[in-house]
Amino acid sequence: MEILMEEGCFELFYDNHFYDNLEFMRMDAICGSTYITMKNILTGEFLTFEQNKITSVRKKAKLTIVPRHPLNMVDETQVSLL
């Protein structure tokens, strides 16, 4: 579960269900069981998973966001007529 302690976005299979867009929040050991709390970065929902029921964890690739140039809303042909 060391992969979950890294920063980033994760997807996992838990108890035959698929969850994605998750960010690691915390890990707790309670009465001999380990619980992992994650936050869905799109909905803000917090989810807690029992570690031994997680069957697969994968870190999602980071998306690089390239800033776009602002659109020029002035028609170039109209400017030259002024």
Rank of each mutant, 00 (worst) to 15 (best):
L81S: 03
E6W: 07
P70I: 02
L63W: 08
L71G: 02
F49G: 02
K39R: 11
R26S: 04
E7H: 12
Y19D: 00
K53Y: 03
Y19F: 15
C9P: 03
K60E: 00
M5S: 10
T43I: 02
N21L: 09
F49W: 03
L71D: 13
S56L: 12
S80R: 13
D20Y: 11
M1L: 13
L12K: 04
D20L: 13
S80P: 01
T48I: 10
T34S: 08
E23H: 08
G8F: 03
Q51K: 15
T64S: 04
F13T: 14
E50K: 14
E76K: 14
I41E: 10
T77Q: 09
M73E: 14
R68M: 09
Y35K: 01
I30V: 10
T48W: 05
Q51S: 05
C9E: 15
N16F: 13
V66N: 01
Q78K: 15
N21A: 03
L12C: 08
F13E: 14
L47G: 01
M38I: 05
H69M: 06
E76S: 12
T34W: 09
I3V: 11
E11F: 04
L81V: 09
C9D: 07
I36L: 11
I36S: 00
R68Y: 07
V66E: 09
M73S: 11
L63G: 05
V74A: 10
F18H: 11
M27V: 07
F24W: 08
N52K: 15
G44V: 06
N40Q: 10
V79Y: 13
L82C: 08
T34I: 11
M1C: 05
G8I: 06
F18N: 03
K59A: 13
N16C: 08
E45C: 15
Y14T: 03
R58F: 06
K39A: 06
K59D: 00
I36P: 02
